[in-house]
C-alpha cells in the first residue's frame, strides 16, 4: 500500500501551520478518505466539513496542492508518494479551524437575489415548459454550492474590499437561471449591474476551471448576463424593443 505524506493545515486564525502526517492509502481512495484516516488514527480533532462523500453535497471544498477541489472527488492516484500533498482550507473565507471556513458570505449574497416571479398560467391552469426552454438553465441547476468558484474568484479572493459589492460566480449562475427561466417576468439587469457588480468580473474563467460539476459558468452564465446588461444601453436593441413594443418589469 502506498504511503503518503499529507501536509495538512492545522490551526485557527490566531496560529496556524502545516503539519505532516504519514498515511497509507488503499486503491481508489480519495483525499477525504485519507483525511478521515488521519482523523481516526492520528488527529481526532482535525476539523473537516463533509457530508455525502459522493460529490453531490459540495461540503468538502479545500485546496489540494494549491488547487480548489472537492476532497471527496480527488483521487490519491493523482499524487506522488515522493512529495507531500498539501491540504489547505479554502482561503477566500474566514477560518473557523483547520480545514473548515465560514462560508456565510455566500448565503448572505444568495438572499439578495430577486426571486422568481411567474407569468400567469395557461388557460387550463397549468404551466408548460418545453425541454429546449430549460436545457440551458438545467445546467445551472446542477450547482452543488461547493463555493469553489467563489473561493477561486480573484475579485474577492485577492481583494477583500470587493466582498461588499461583488456577488461572485455562484450568484451569477443563480441569477442567470432565473433570468433565462421561461416562466419568469422579472428583469434583473439592474441587479446584475449595480447590486451584484458583474462589471468586476474580468472573465478570467477560474470559476469554470474549478467547477466540479463542469458548469460553463463564464460562457453560459456570466457572459450572457454581461450581454443582457449591454442590451440595456445598446441603442439598437432599445430601438428594436420600442419598435416591437416589448417591455419587461424591473426587479
Amino acid at each position: 500500500m502506498p504511503t503518503f505524506t499529507m501536509r495538512i493545515f492545522r490551526g485557527d486564525t490566531a496560529r496556524g501551520e502545516f503539519r505532516d502526517y504519514r498515511v497509507e492509502a488503499e486503491e481508489g481512495m480519495v483525499v477525504l478518505d485519507v483525511i478521515h484516516r488521519v482523523q481516526a488514527t492520528q488527529a481526532p480533532d482535525l476539523a473537516v466539513r463533509w457530508n455525502c462523500k459522493a460529490g453531490k453535497c459540495g461540503s468538502c471544498s479545500a485546496e489540494v496542492d494549491g488547487r480548489p477541489r472537492l476532497m471527496c472527488m480527488t483521487r490519491m492516484e493523482l499524487f506522488s508518494e515522493r512529495e507531500p500533498v498539501t491540504v489547505a482550507p479554502i482561503r477566500a473565507f474566514p477560518l473557523i479551524r483547520d480545514l473548515v471556513t465560514d462560508v456565510s458570505f455566500n448565503f448572505e449574497k444568495a438572499k439578495t437575489i430577486p426571486p422568481l416571479r411567474l407569468k400567469p398560467p395557461e388557460p387550463d391552469g397549468t404551466y408548460r415548459m418545453m425541454q429546449e426552454d430549460i436545457d440551458r438553465i438545467q445546467e445551472f441547476h446542477k450547482c452543488i454550492e461547493c463555493f469553489l468558484c467563489q473561493d477561486v474568484c480573484h475579485v474577492i479572493r485577492d481583494h477583500e474590499e470587493n466582498k461588499r459589492a461583488f456577488a461572485g460566480p455562484r450568484v451569477f449562475i443563480k441569477v442567470a437561471s432565473l433570468e433565462m427561466h421561461p416562466l419568469d417576468t422579472r428583469d434583473r439587469t439592474e441587479f446584475v449591474r449595480a447590486t451584484a457588480s458583474v462589471g468586476l468580473c474580468n472573465i478570467t474563467k477560474c470559476c469554470t476551471e474549478v467547477c466540479p460539476e463542469g458548469i460553463h459558468i463564464t460562457d453560459n452564465a456570466i457572459i450572457p448576463l454581461k450581454e443582457r446588461m449591454a442590451d440595456s444601453f445598446d441603442p439598437i436593441v432599445w430601438l428594436l424593443r420600442k419598435f416591437r413594443g416589448q417591455t419587461t418589469q424591473p426587479a
Partner: peptide, 14 residues
C-alpha cells in the same frame, strides 16, 4: 441566517 464566525480573519497562510 446565523453567521457565527469565530473571527473574520482568513486562514493565516502567507
Amino acid at each position: 441566517m446565523n453567521g457565527h464566525a469565530v473571527s473574520q480573519a482568513r486562514p493565516p497562510i502567507a
